[in-house]
């Protein structure tokens, strides 16, 4: 098998006395779409935040494109070194609460990191940013400030902003959970398009239909561990583990 794009090896994370992640092993291949489901508090978001070292794991190793990103000069613990930023430039993240920069327009939100972190020329960043915002259907909103955009539009700007760094891997952290129901589809459509373009993605979601449709693999997490994983048809339709069955029963019955 080809080298996985991302490999987590025995990741542990605790907040005080609470052990949030209890030994996570996960491999994600290039172009693969992995959907992570599970009850709240199961550690899904924390796992994503460990992958780009927003929460440095206490134990275990993370390999991105074969490189151990928890070790080496200026690693997670150091925080000052170059390869934390290097890693994050390769891993895009989209948040539940959008976290757009409210003092900057949609386009400036998208161009800021390429200009400041990668030193791209203004004109080039602008061109690329404009193209990305067109791609997520916001060509007419380039110069709007976030407060003038709907939640769905804000989230699409946030996706464009992450894509502007040419990430090799995209992390989606419950990106539709804060949206009004009628705005969910426009965001999922953008994500569908990314899937069809072959982007490698890890998607933490409560949208079971979406996970079924686009996921190459479903990972079910509970209490800081991966309980079971496999193709959507087996995990979502014929779960083996009792905890998975109970969770799916609760989610799908309404």
């Amino acid at each position: 098998m080809a080298e996985p794009l991302l490999k987590l090896d025995g990741i542990h994370k605790r907040f005080g006395n609470l052990e949030v992640l209890r030994g996570i092993d996960l491999e994600v291949g290039r172009g693969e779409v992995v959907c992570v489901i599970g009850p709240s508090g199961s550690g899904k978001s924390t796992m994503l935040r460990c992958i780009n070292l927003l929460e440095p794991p206490e134990k275990g190793e993370i390999f991105l494109e074969g490189r151990d990103i928890c070790k080496g000069p200026g690693s997670a613990a150091g925080e000052a070194g170059w390869d934390v930023n290097f890693l994050r430039q390769r891993v895009g993240m989209v948040f539940q609460q959008f976290n757009l920069f409210p003092h900057r327009t949609a386009l400036q939100n998208v161009t800021m990191a390429p200009e400041k972190a990668l030193g791209r020329p203004k004109e080039e960043a602008r061109k690329k940013g404009t193209a990305l915002l067109e791609r997520v259907g916001l060509a007419d909103k380039l110069n709007q400030y976030p407060e003038r955009l709907s939640g769905g539009q804000q989230q699409r700007v946030a996706i464009a902003r992450a894509l502007a760094m040419d990430p090799h891997l995209m992390l989606f952290d419950e990106v539709t959970s804060a949206l009004d129901p009628e705005l969910v589809k426009e965001v999922l459509d953008v994500m569908r398009e990314l899937v069809s373009e072959g982007m490698t993605m890890i998607v933490v979601t409560h949208e079971m239909g979406f996970a079924h449709e686009v996921g190459d693999r479903i990972v079910f997490m509970d209490a800081g561990q991966i309980v079971e994983q496999g193709p959507p048809s087996s995990i979502l339709d014929q779960p083996r583990e009792e905890r998975t069955k109970r969770f799916l029963g609760l989610v799908l019955e309404h």
């Binding site: 290097f86 993240m93 976290n99 800021m112 972190a117 990668l118 946030a158 902003r161």
Partner: peptide
């Protein structure tokens, strides 16, 4: 979330 978003984009502190 603002600092997290900025850092997740690869900008330094």
């Amino acid at each position: 979330g603002q600092m997290e978003a900025a850092r997740s984009l690869g900008m330094s502190h």
